[in-house]
Simulated scan of single mutants.
Amino acid sequence: MSSPSPAGPAEQASPPWRRVTAGALSAALVPVVTCVTALLLLTAYTTTGAAGDAPARISVGNARIFVPPNSENTAAFFDISNTGATDDVLTSVSSPQLGAVMLGRRVTKDGAGHMEPLGSLTIPARSSVRMTPYGVDVMVADPPELKAGDTVRFDLFFRDSGRVSVETVTVPVRS
Protein backbone atom coordinates (compact mmCIF):
# COMPACT_ATOMS: atom_id res chain seq x y z
CA MET A 1 0.00 0.00 0.00
CA SER A 2 1.22 3.31 -0.78
CA SER A 3 0.74 6.36 1.24
CA PRO A 4 -0.97 9.37 -0.27
CA SER A 5 1.42 11.80 -1.82
CA PRO A 6 1.49 15.26 -0.44
CA ALA A 7 -0.74 17.68 -2.44
CA GLY A 8 0.98 20.26 -4.56
CA PRO A 9 0.27 23.98 -4.25
CA ALA A 10 -2.37 23.90 -7.02
CA GLU A 11 -4.20 21.08 -5.40
CA GLN A 12 -4.45 22.63 -1.97
CA ALA A 13 -7.81 24.10 -0.96
CA SER A 14 -8.17 27.90 -0.85
CA PRO A 15 -7.81 29.46 2.53
CA PRO A 16 -11.18 30.24 4.17
CA TRP A 17 -10.63 34.00 4.04
CA ARG A 18 -10.40 33.84 0.19
CA ARG A 19 -13.69 31.99 -0.06
CA VAL A 20 -15.39 34.58 2.17
CA THR A 21 -13.96 37.50 0.15
CA ALA A 22 -15.01 36.02 -3.18
CA GLY A 23 -18.54 35.38 -1.85
CA ALA A 24 -18.82 38.90 -0.47
CA LEU A 25 -17.72 40.42 -3.76
CA SER A 26 -20.27 38.37 -5.69
CA ALA A 27 -23.02 39.36 -3.29
CA ALA A 28 -22.13 43.05 -3.48
CA LEU A 29 -21.85 43.10 -7.26
CA VAL A 30 -25.62 42.84 -7.95
CA PRO A 31 -26.72 45.88 -5.91
CA VAL A 32 -23.77 47.95 -7.15
CA VAL A 33 -24.60 47.21 -10.80
CA THR A 34 -28.29 47.94 -10.14
CA CYS A 35 -27.49 51.31 -8.53
CA VAL A 36 -25.13 52.33 -11.32
CA THR A 37 -27.74 51.38 -13.96
CA ALA A 38 -30.47 53.35 -12.15
CA LEU A 39 -28.17 56.37 -11.84
CA LEU A 40 -27.36 56.27 -15.57
CA LEU A 41 -31.05 56.03 -16.50
CA LEU A 42 -32.01 58.92 -14.21
CA THR A 43 -29.19 61.02 -15.65
CA ALA A 44 -30.40 60.33 -19.18
CA TYR A 45 -34.01 61.18 -18.20
CA THR A 46 -32.94 64.47 -16.60
CA THR A 47 -30.78 65.38 -19.59
CA THR A 48 -33.79 65.16 -21.93
CA GLY A 49 -35.38 68.06 -20.03
CA ALA A 50 -38.54 66.14 -19.12
CA ALA A 51 -37.67 65.56 -15.47
CA GLY A 52 -39.25 68.03 -13.12
CA ASP A 53 -41.80 69.48 -15.53
CA ALA A 54 -45.23 69.65 -13.97
CA PRO A 55 -47.99 68.24 -16.18
CA ALA A 56 -50.55 70.44 -17.86
CA ARG A 57 -53.37 71.56 -15.56
CA ILE A 58 -56.41 72.42 -17.65
CA SER A 59 -59.49 74.31 -16.50
CA VAL A 60 -62.39 75.50 -18.63
CA GLY A 61 -64.57 78.51 -17.81
CA ASN A 62 -66.83 81.17 -19.33
CA ALA A 63 -68.58 78.43 -21.33
CA ARG A 64 -71.34 79.77 -23.56
CA ILE A 65 -73.22 78.89 -26.72
CA PHE A 66 -75.11 81.31 -28.93
CA VAL A 67 -78.87 80.97 -29.36
CA PRO A 68 -78.95 79.79 -32.97
CA PRO A 69 -79.72 82.76 -35.24
CA ASN A 70 -81.04 80.26 -37.78
CA SER A 71 -81.59 76.54 -37.88
CA GLU A 72 -78.37 75.86 -39.80
CA ASN A 73 -75.57 76.47 -37.29
CA THR A 74 -74.30 78.18 -34.17
CA ALA A 75 -71.13 78.24 -32.11
CA ALA A 76 -69.90 77.56 -28.59
CA PHE A 77 -67.03 79.34 -26.86
CA PHE A 78 -64.77 78.49 -23.91
CA ASP A 79 -61.93 80.09 -21.99
CA ILE A 80 -59.32 77.37 -21.47
CA SER A 81 -56.50 77.87 -18.95
CA ASN A 82 -53.38 75.76 -18.52
CA THR A 83 -51.62 76.48 -15.23
CA GLY A 84 -49.18 73.59 -15.70
CA ALA A 85 -45.60 73.73 -16.94
CA THR A 86 -46.21 71.83 -20.20
CA ASP A 87 -48.39 72.50 -23.22
CA ASP A 88 -51.53 70.45 -23.84
CA VAL A 89 -53.59 70.02 -26.98
CA LEU A 90 -57.38 70.13 -27.36
CA THR A 91 -57.89 67.31 -29.86
CA SER A 92 -61.68 67.13 -30.12
CA VAL A 93 -65.00 68.27 -28.71
CA SER A 94 -68.32 66.46 -28.42
CA SER A 95 -71.78 67.11 -27.02
CA PRO A 96 -74.29 64.37 -26.30
CA GLN A 97 -77.11 66.90 -26.71
CA LEU A 98 -76.05 68.50 -29.98
CA GLY A 99 -74.69 65.84 -32.29
CA ALA A 100 -72.24 67.21 -34.87
CA VAL A 101 -69.75 69.61 -33.27
CA MET A 102 -66.15 70.40 -34.20
CA LEU A 103 -63.36 72.82 -33.56
CA GLY A 104 -63.31 75.64 -36.10
CA ARG A 105 -61.63 78.91 -36.83
CA ARG A 106 -62.68 82.02 -38.68
CA VAL A 107 -60.68 82.69 -41.82
CA THR A 108 -60.88 85.94 -43.78
CA LYS A 109 -59.92 85.86 -47.44
CA ASP A 110 -60.51 88.64 -49.96
CA GLY A 111 -62.60 90.51 -47.40
CA ALA A 112 -64.99 87.61 -46.79
CA GLY A 113 -64.99 85.53 -43.62
CA HIS A 114 -65.89 81.87 -43.30
CA MET A 115 -65.36 79.03 -40.86
CA GLU A 116 -62.90 76.19 -41.42
CA PRO A 117 -62.51 73.00 -39.41
CA LEU A 118 -59.55 73.01 -37.05
CA GLY A 119 -57.84 69.69 -36.26
CA SER A 120 -56.57 70.64 -32.80
CA LEU A 121 -55.79 73.60 -30.59
CA THR A 122 -52.62 73.95 -28.50
CA ILE A 123 -53.07 75.35 -25.01
CA PRO A 124 -49.63 76.73 -24.06
CA ALA A 125 -48.17 76.17 -20.60
CA ARG A 126 -48.98 78.87 -18.05
CA SER A 127 -51.37 80.51 -20.49
CA SER A 128 -55.00 80.81 -21.55
CA VAL A 129 -56.86 80.57 -24.83
CA ARG A 130 -60.10 82.48 -25.22
CA MET A 131 -62.47 81.32 -27.93
CA THR A 132 -64.37 84.12 -29.72
CA PRO A 133 -66.61 84.55 -32.79
CA TYR A 134 -63.63 86.15 -34.55
CA GLY A 135 -61.10 83.38 -33.96
CA VAL A 136 -61.39 79.81 -32.73
CA ASP A 137 -64.70 78.32 -31.58
CA VAL A 138 -66.72 75.12 -31.55
CA MET A 139 -68.95 74.92 -34.59
CA VAL A 140 -72.38 73.34 -34.08
CA ALA A 141 -74.12 72.11 -37.23
CA ASP A 142 -77.89 71.74 -37.34
CA PRO A 143 -78.53 72.64 -33.68
CA PRO A 144 -81.78 71.84 -31.90
CA GLU A 145 -84.02 74.67 -30.77
CA LEU A 146 -82.25 76.47 -27.92
CA LYS A 147 -83.50 79.33 -25.75
CA ALA A 148 -81.47 81.82 -23.73
CA GLY A 149 -80.56 80.27 -20.38
CA ASP A 150 -80.58 76.63 -21.57
CA THR A 151 -77.59 74.55 -20.55
CA VAL A 152 -75.72 72.20 -22.87
CA ARG A 153 -72.98 69.77 -21.85
CA PHE A 154 -69.73 69.59 -23.81
CA ASP A 155 -66.84 67.18 -23.44
CA LEU A 156 -63.44 68.59 -24.37
CA PHE A 157 -60.74 66.00 -25.02
CA PHE A 158 -57.12 66.91 -24.36
CA ARG A 159 -54.04 64.93 -25.41
CA ASP A 160 -52.55 64.79 -21.89
CA SER A 161 -55.34 65.90 -19.55
CA GLY A 162 -58.03 63.63 -20.97
CA ARG A 163 -61.71 64.56 -20.94
CA VAL A 164 -62.95 67.75 -19.32
CA SER A 165 -66.76 68.10 -19.14
CA VAL A 166 -68.35 71.53 -18.93
CA GLU A 167 -71.86 72.95 -18.96
CA THR A 168 -72.43 75.88 -21.31
CA VAL A 169 -75.17 78.46 -20.98
CA THR A 170 -77.08 79.56 -24.06
CA VAL A 171 -76.77 83.30 -24.62
CA PRO A 172 -78.30 85.61 -27.26
CA VAL A 173 -76.06 86.79 -30.10
CA ARG A 174 -74.98 90.39 -29.59
CA SER A 175 -74.58 92.70 -32.52
Score class of each variant (00 low, 15 high):
V60P: 07
N73S: 15
F77S: 02
C35R: 02
D88F: 06
G111Q: 03
S59R: 10
S14D: 09
S59G: 02
V107L: 08
A38V: 12
A56C: 04
L40E: 08
N62R: 15
D110N: 15
R64T: 13
M115L: 13
W17H: 10
T37G: 07
G113E: 12
G52Y: 02
A56Y: 09
R105F: 12
T91E: 14
Q12E: 12
D110C: 01
P16N: 01
D88S: 04
R57L: 12
A13C: 00
A125H: 13
P55E: 04
V33Y: 06
V33P: 04
M115K: 07
A125E: 13
P16K: 06
Q97P: 00
V33I: 14
A22M: 07
T21M: 08
V20A: 11
V30F: 15
A76D: 06
H114V: 00
Y45M: 03
A22P: 00
D88M: 04
A56F: 09
A51D: 08
T83A: 15
F78T: 05
T48H: 05
H114I: 00
A56S: 15
A125R: 15
V30N: 08
A76N: 06
K109F: 05
L25R: 13
Y45D: 07
A50L: 14
I123Y: 07
P68W: 02
A24W: 11
Y45C: 00
L39M: 11
A112P: 00
I65M: 13
Q97C: 00
V93C: 06
G104F: 10
S95E: 05
G52S: 01
M115Y: 14
S71T: 13
P69F: 05
N70V: 05
E116P: 04
P124G: 03
D79R: 15
N62K: 15
D110Q: 14
L29I: 01
M115I: 11
A125Q: 12
G84S: 11
G61C: 05
W17G: 00
R106D: 03
T43R: 12
A75C: 06
V89C: 06
S26D: 06
L25V: 15
P96S: 12
A85H: 10
I123L: 12
R106H: 12
M115G: 12
P69V: 06
P96A: 08
I58F: 09
G111D: 02
N73T: 09
T122K: 13
H114S: 11
R126G: 09
G23P: 09
S26I: 15
R18G: 01
A38T: 07
Q12P: 03
